[in-house]
């Protein structure tokens, strides 16, 4: 927040390309990307669990690669493509990973979910047919306390499998309320 006291620090206009939209914000240079996304741009889908790079909850994509927004300065990512969880679905259509997470029960409390999904999306972009071990390795910086990771890994493999076979089901996810 820019306010009567924070202005003592150096404040800049940052122009960020977030989920395909150009957004600008007036922010102190010491505000992290996490803070600017959540507090300036209202993108509260990006979560935080430690702000020290130890849990992975704040993962976003920068030019398609997972980055911890708690350890990134907005000024460092100006001009790059930032994707948050809000940018994963296309309109009302869920990303195949979002769909597989819903269907397999990979979501319990949901707090690690945005970071998991974006990390998984980067993996499948690079390696469309990962092994179970590769999925586990890719997700190893994102802590989850609910699921034991089992269904999260299942969900990533399901999405990869569907992309490979074109077996993407149509229509809304069965039985789930939005």
């Amino acid at each position: 927040m820019v306010n009567e006291t924070a202005t003592a620090g150096e404040v800049r206009v940052v122009r960020l390309r977030v989920n395909g939209e150009l957004r600008s914000a007036l922010a102190p240079v010491h505000a992290t990307l996490l803070e600017v996304l959540r507090e300036q741009l209202g993108l509260t889908g990006t979560k935080h669990g430690c702000e020290l790079g130890e849990c992975g909850a704040c993962t976003v994509l920068v030019d398609g690669r997972p980055q911890l927004s708690c350890l990134a300065l907005p000024v460092q990512v100006e001009g790059r493509e930032i994707t948050t969880i809000e940018g994963m679905a296309v309109g009302p259509d869920l990303h195949p990973l979002q769909r597989s997470f819903v269907e397999t029960g990979a979501v319990q409390c949901g707090y690690c979910t945005p970071g998991m999904l974006l990390t998984a999306a980067a993996l499948l972009e690079e390696q469309p047919h990962p092994s179970r071990a590769e999925v586990e390795a890719a997700l190893a910086g994102n802590l989850c306390r609910c699921t034991g990771y089992v269904k999260i890994v299942d969900a990533v493999l399901l999405a990869a499998d569907r992309a490979g076979t074109g077996r993407m089901p149509d229509g809304p996810v069965d039985g789930a309320g939005a």
Partner: peptide, 27 residues
């Protein structure tokens, strides 16, 4: 009819799209 079936959670879509409002998201 529905008891006993492995249906998706009713709040899962909100959670995978970042729409769920947790305590720190209350503005």
């Amino acid at each position: 009819q529905v008891v006993g079936r492995p249906l998706p959670k009713v709040d899962a879509v909100a959670k995978v799209t970042g729409r769920t409002v947790y305590a720190d998201d209350v503005v």
